[in-house]
Simulated scan of single mutants.
Amino acid sequence: MIKPLIAAAALALLLAGCGDDSGGGSDAEEPAATGEGVCATTDATGDLLAEICEKGVITVSTDAAYPPQSELDPKTNEYVGFDIDVATEIANRLGVDIAWETPSWDVITAGSWNGRWDMSVGSMTPTNDRQEVLDFTQPYYYTPAVVAVNADNDSVADLSADLDGTTIGVCAGCTYEQFLDKSLAIEGFTFDFVIDDAEIVGYDTDTTAMQDLAVGDGDRLDAAITSITVAQGFEKAGNPTKIVGDPIFYEPLAVAIDKSSELDPASLVEAVDAIVGEMHDDGTLTGFSEEWYDGIDLTVQQ
């Protein structure tokens, strides 16, 4: 089991994840059993965990347009996806209901949430700079970062040479942007920055970059970098894009909690980290991964 990434701890994997700038929220869903879970046994008082238990609800930030990790289903007006299932299960094991907020990614990763939400379950990579403002649990899963091109592209084969100087779309403020500008740093991980002098185009989320890539080969973008889960899902939905080459790096993805919370977050971080560990041990995370990622278990470090 990976050791917790609490404060400036050592390990960290996610896509990577990216954010949505809708800024909205929704009412609590998936009520947990009253009187059960961590809140039924904790002796926490006067801190963030105690407040959440007293309210009976935890507010979680996520992305409303990042399938299959998370998205708002227009038919049901409910959030669905891998991250949604993970966050809901954490709330259930805490013994509280869950409510959602969808702030922009750069706002989430900057910390100083001012109590607007309590926790982020949004496929966030615990980079060294993020660890300065956020506490992280142990990773709950790991994803490969891949390069996608338009389906008509036949010029990109060698990722170490064919992408130099090209225009590449990524979500702004994500690890993919840091990979391209060669600033990506995660304690315990090393990276081979094989792409030189790319013109980086930042988007609100990976999906938006992929949409521009689908317009045409080289029309707006030459390539995009995203998680393999997003790239495969986008192509599977019938969009004219394809993955080229092997993954360019692997990253851990973890639950994040604001260090600067007005109420002490330490007991909440400890409780959620323990829950993530339990979900690894009892196969819950594997089940979620296999459900959302075509039978693939991404919860084991590669």
Rank of each mutant, 00 (worst) to 15 (best):
V86W: 01
K3L: 10
P126C: 04
P68C: 01
D20P: 03
S227F: 00
G81R: 00
K75H: 12
A274D: 06
L14M: 11
D47L: 04
K182Y: 03
G218M: 09
V300H: 07
T205S: 09
I52Y: 01
A185Q: 11
W100T: 03
V149W: 03
F82H: 09
P240D: 02
S261H: 14
D47C: 07
D206N: 09
Q69L: 07
G295E: 15
T109P: 05
M210T: 00
Q302Y: 09
T167V: 14
C18N: 10
G202S: 06
E78C: 03
K259G: 05
V146G: 01
T102S: 14
I84R: 10
T76N: 09
D219G: 04
C53Y: 03
A9Y: 14
Y203F: 15
P68G: 00
A9H: 14
G233Q: 03
V86H: 02
W117M: 06
I58V: 15
G19W: 02
D282M: 06
S183Q: 06
V146T: 03
G111I: 05
Y141H: 07
S123I: 10
N114G: 11
A185I: 06
T229F: 10
V146P: 04
A151M: 10
D181A: 12
A33R: 06
C39A: 12
A40N: 13
Q178A: 07
P247S: 02
N114Q: 15
W117K: 11
Y142D: 00
L49P: 03
V170R: 01
L159F: 06
V80Q: 02
A16S: 13
A157G: 15
L180T: 11
A148N: 02
D164F: 12
D21N: 08
L253H: 04
S155I: 04
T229I: 05
V255W: 03
W292P: 11
G24K: 14
M1D: 07
A145I: 02
M119A: 08
P68H: 03
L213P: 01
A148G: 14
F189S: 15
S260L: 14
S22F: 14
V80A: 08
N150Q: 13
C39N: 10
P103K: 05
D83R: 07
A256H: 00
P74T: 00
G17I: 01
L134E: 00
D181I: 04
I200G: 10
L163K: 11
A223C: 12
V57S: 07
A237I: 07
S183M: 05
F249Q: 09
H280L: 07
P247K: 11
Y66R: 01
T166Q: 13
Q211I: 04
G111L: 10
I84S: 13
